[in-house]
Amino acid sequence: MNDITGMARALDFIEDHLREPVGVAEMAAAVAYSLYHFCRTFKAATQFTPYDYLMRRRIAEAAREVLSGERKLIDIAFDYRFNNPETFSRAFKRVLGVQPTQWRKQGAAGDRQPGYRQIMPRLTAAHLEHLRHATPWRPMIEERPALDLTGVMTLGDDIAAAWEHLHHELAACGLADAGRAFYTWTWCAAEGGVTATMVALADSGINTEAGALVAKTLPARTYLRVPHRGTARDLALTLDYAYHIWLSQSDYRAVLPWYVEDFGATSDRPGDGAWDVCLPVERVE
């Protein structure tokens, strides 16, 4: 059994015991590691200590139940092995930035899911494989200038058709693709909710009056820039890494329900390979 397989089994064990009084020693024994070696290997594989991961997953699942609004907070707290409401509230606020009561209130108030992208998902073997390669990528906090985008906006996930249409529109305007910097801007405010994507190039001088092109300006602000390596299908893993692993253990938090993919200057349609994902963030006071 290699370490990825062993730690993937540990993740399964943790999921099966979120509501049980399980400790790190039991996780280690379940996958035939010593406590010492398990703690070291789990951290290397997931970038979380095992106990921290367990607590974050408990809070994540509890947070979903708090949002549903059907059960008493104290019952949810006990279900996820928090001994009293105070401990639950403290852990909840540490992970999600608000008290459970406020979380429930925000959820009931609007259609935007509070803390979306903060609820720690269950990590899988695919995440561990991705992380194994992600380690040297080194995300960066950076100030980026305002960005004028011109492109095609689409709802849903048929991005390939949007790229096709963008190139068609550019050709109709007599504009060549070569040497231009391409971007996507993707907005999604709730888990499983509507996704809006703009495929675009950085240019404010294109006449958008006649065709299907639209313009959008992203103001200058602070971003977390995460290098993405792999296919477009792997993007969800890079986003999980950025939102739930890197940011959740940093002094920064995501502040807006969108991100930008920066493909740089490319002579072909962006696709497999290497590009950057940029998330608007702010420093946590």
């Binding site: 400790g23 790190v24 020693a25 039991e26 406590l35 010492y36 398990f38 703690c39 200590t49 095992p50 106990y51």
Partner: peptide, 8 residues
Amino acid sequence: ETLQTGEF
């Protein structure tokens, strides 16, 4: 607490 939290 070592067996519970992994801290030692």
